[in-house]
């Protein structure tokens, strides 16, 4: 004990850390459907980003070209043109950014808020837990769309408000998921070990409890993006989302609705876009759930 030894730290560093991420990836790769979901999501993101450089909002997205209105899908206009002569394909590609950003940002809001609430509720238990959970239940009791409508009409229309509204609507779901995930971790012996090591409650919550209860939250978040996109589209369809000329998919559906009998492609393609996006996020969520399940670990 007394002898002073020197240790070659570089030597120790040689033994590399293998992150949990690589293990999850190894499991994730095994599922073909999950990989399809992931590829589509990546493709969507690439297309969305590319579209922002290829097209200009005022010239390519919102304009009138009455000579070319209501053309059927053709080589020139892949998805046809709408009642103002605008190319539907271009609008869908350009509009992907609204759906994706609403889905992702609203989930980030919901996840951030819900995670903190659920963590506090699950970790402390007792009265705190009761209050938080009862409030969540009240909010869950209100139908999503109704809640969105109420918030949108209270705060006015706009992309930011839409994100916030959907984020708030989904917060209680995240709070409940997090709390449920925290419960078994809270009583684990390593939490007691952290306590005796001198960790404060905050340190325990964020360094030990959260990392160990993250899997269901990640899955919920991935699935939440899909629901967020759907809710955003529904609200836009009802005319409560983003203002009308914006090529949001739900708004496009709404615009095409009046002409559905004769020009069904006006609703078909935005609908397909929503479906593909939601499906790919759900596939990804499913794959993540399996990959993160410790029972499947080898």
């Amino acid at each position: 004990m007394e002898e002073k030894r020197t240790y070659d730290i570089a030597e120790l560093k040689k033994y590399k850390k293998r992150s949990m991420l690589s293990e999850v990836w190894r499991n994730y790769k095994k599922s073909p459907s999950a990989m399809v979901g992931l590829v589509i999501v990546i493709l969507l993101i690439v297309i969305t980003v590319a579209a922002q450089f290829m097209y200009v909002f005022n010239e390519d997205i919102v304009y009138n070209d009455l000579k070319n209105r209501l053309l059927s899908p053709s080589a020139e206009h892949w998805f046809g043109t709408d009642q103002y002569g605008r190319d539907v394909f271009v609008r869908i590609i350009y509009g992907a950014k609204y759906s994706l950003s609403v889905g992702i940002v609203s989930v980030m809001i919901a996840c951030g808020l819900g995670m903190c609430l659920g963590l506090v509720a699950g970790y402390y238990g007792g009265i705190v837990e009761n209050i938080i959970l009862r409030f969540c239940e009240i909010f869950i009791g209100i139908p999503t769309i109704l809640m969105g409508v109420a918030l949108m009409s209270a705060f006015g229309q706009g992309l930011g408000v839409l994100m916030l509204a959907i984020g708030l609507v989904y917060t209680p779901l995240f709070a409940r998921t997090t709390r449920a995930a925290v419960l078994p971790v809270r009583d684990a012996e390593y939490i007691e070990a952290a306590k005796i090591a001198g960790c404060s409650d905050l340190e325990i919550m964020f360094k030990h409890v959260l990392p160990n209860s993250l899997s269901p939250i990640i899955v919920q978040a991935t699935m939440g993006v899909a629901s967020g996109i759907l809710t955003a589209s529904s609200l836009s369809f009802l005319g409560l989302g983003v203002p009308i000329p914006t090529p949001e998919w739900g708004a496009m559906l709404s615009e095409g609705r009046e002409l559905i009998r004769d020009y069904s492609y006006l609703t078909l393609f935005p609908g397909l876009a929503i479906m593909t996006t939601v499906l790919s996020f759900n596939l990804m969520g499913d794959g993540l759930r399996d990959a993160l399940d410790p029972k499947l670990k080898q």
């Binding site: 949990m20 012996e189 390593y190 007691e192 070990a193 005796i196 030990h208 990392p211």
Partner: peptide, 15 residues
């Protein structure tokens, strides 16, 4: 004042 736990399988944070 420290504690050594009974079960080394559950008293170490797996992450």
């Amino acid at each position: 004042m420290q504690l050594i736990f009974q079960d080394p399988f559950s008293s170490l944070d797996p992450r």
